[in-house]
Design a protein around this nucleic acid. Structure first.
Length: 463
RNA sequence: GGCGGCGUGGCCGAGUGGUUAGGCAGGGGCCUGCAAAGCCCCGUACUCCGGUUCGAAUCCGGACGCCGCCUCCA
């Protein structure tokens, strides 16, 4: 049974399942107005791993993640760039999926776009207005948080306590500073939809509650996102569901930050590194490994050093893949554990990894177990226990794939020049012309190859 | 002010009342023509101060430091 920390109750508990064997997950997606940053990458990776592991364990996972394609920031960006909001959305949504695909994240089963759900949002808001849960001001429609008795559940604080800490806002038409906008009246020239309460656009909190319930239904299983979404975004989603008398997410999961110089990386601080940049200069799998090596709820520091560290660790795994000629798994494919024959030591390894991953996605010890297994496979092979070593290495490969990490045996194509250098080096070595062989090796290294000799001859690969 | 999290060896990062995390880097050795990769061996850490205990990095209390949420934010 897979257990996960529930942010509302503050305990690790069994993942709920409305229908046994089927797991529904909603992950708050991006507002597409700029390039994704490292934090977005972590979110995608963490929940991709949850999804993959659940699938590996035999669950039928329905994974939904939205695109917020209407928002103040998108409008501002369009004005800024002198283009339309649809151009901004098209560009940054495509950047988003390109980056997420590069990270090895499987595409969500459903990708709702906010602008496709406006009628449903309008009718929800309309019902709130009718019930007196929402009220109109000169700039839009607001939700009255005092109408939800347990408002503050996700924040872990009662309404009064939250109110005490709220900053003073310019808008004095709001009954409480905590009241949040459901519908924003459009200013001239802004994208808008007609509604009984005026031309305008939906508020962010309304988008997610409508799309999650719309696609996953009442009482869906798991709602996830970054810790900063816990309050107020998730609180406000939930408040609307409560006000609408609809059972909402049964379990909440929140992942930790990406830090920069010990400070939270965030759009508002401007201290973020774009994921697109990172992926352009490093192996995306190194970022996944870096994420897997720390617990998903802990903050992680992503620096040139920690990425380089992960790349070197990854090289050890790829070396295993080369040595045992392991197929490259994962990628877009979600592996299913029952498709593999688990027996003997491999089964034992699977059990140990599973025990950790089932326990609140405890990836660090799982990864540690797998690295130990790498060493064991190599040791066994060095001692001539080939078949034991092979099955162990294969188990390692499959278990990394269960977390979406694909091991790559080198399959670098040799250009004619390099192939010639290799042939000449083989000849020099068999003639015991060590000076000539060393010179040819230097040339290969200059061409960017790593050179490895074996009894079978010279083997080259990219670093 | 309210609520929450964190402080581990050179670095990253788990764990937990007594016995190896793991990776990276570093040192020694094996293998190799020399390398690379791999293998073997080595570092002996847990912010500080009290307390509980036969025994605490691990539990309790306190101090210090750092971070986050309460405002858009993964």
């Amino acid at each position: 049974m897979i257990r996960l920390y529930d942010s509302v109750h503050g305990v690790v508990r069994d993942l709920p399942m409305r229908e046994p064997g089927r797991l529904s997950i909603y992950s708050c997606g991006p507002t597409v107005y700029s390039l994704p940053h490292l934090g977005h990458g972590r979110q995608t990776l963490v929940w991709d791993v949850v999804r993959r592991w659940s699938t590996f364990r035999g669950l039928d996972v329905h994974f939904v993640s939205n695109i917020t394609d209407i928002d103040d920031k998108i409008i501002a960006r369009a004005l800024d760039q002198g283009t339309s909001t649809s151009d901004v959305v098209a560009r940054y949504e495509s950047e988003w999926w390109e980056a997420m695909t590069a990270l090895g994240a499987a595409m969500p089963d459903d990708i709702p776009h906010a602008t496709d759900w406006v009628p449903q949002m309008i009718s929800l808001i309309e019902s709130f207005v009718e019930d007196g849960v929402a009220y109109q001001t000169s700039d839009g429609v607001y939700f009255d948080v005092s109408r939800v008795t347990d408002y503050g559940l996700l924040a872990g604080q009662p309404l009064d306590s939250l109110r005490a800490g709220a900053r003073v806002e310019a808008n004095d038409e709001k009954r409480s500073p905590l009241d949040f906008v459901l519908w924003k009246n459009a200013k001239p020239g802004e994208p808008s939809w007609p509604a009984p309460f005026g031309e305008g656009r939906p508020g962010w909190h309304t988008e997610c509650v409508v799309m999650s319930l719309g696609l996953l239904g009442d009482g869906f299983d798991l709602h996830v996102g970054g810790l900063d979404l816990k309050f107020p975004h998730h609180e406000n989603e939930r408040a609307q569901a409560v006000a609408a008398n609809r059972p909402f997410a049964q379990h909440w999961g929140h992942h930790g930050w990406v830090m920069v110089d010990q400070m939270k990386m965030s759009s508002s601080l401007g201290n973020f590194t774009s994921l697109t940049d990172l992926l352009g200069r490093t192996d995306p799998r190194a970022y996944r490994l870096l994420v897997l090596r720390s617990h998903y709820r802990s903050p992680i520091e992503v620096t040139t050093e920690t990425i380089a560290d992960a790349e070197r660790a990854l090289a050890r795994l790829d070396t295993l893949a080369r040595r045992f000629e392991l197929p490259s798994l994962a990628g877009a494919t979600l592996e299913v554990g029952s498709n593999y024959r688990w027996e003997g030591e491999a089964l034992d390894l699977y059990d140990r990894v599973a025990t950790n991953l089932d326990d609140d996605l405890n990836t660090p010890p799982a990864v540690a177990q797998l690295f130990e297994a790498v060493g064991l496979a190599n040791t066994l092979a060095d001692r001539g226990a080939t078949s034991e070593a092979q099955s162990f290495a294969e188990a390692v490969n499959v278990l990394f794939a269960s977390m979406g990490l694909a091991l790559h045996a080198s399959d670098d194509a040799l250009d004619p020049l390099s192939a010639d250098l290799v042939a000449r080096r083989d000849a020099a070595r068999s003639a015991k012309d060590w000076v000539g062989a060393d010179k040819l090796r230097d040339e290969l290294v200059e061409h960017g190859w790593v050179v490895e000799d074996s009894a079978a001859g010279t083997f080259i690969r990219r670093p």
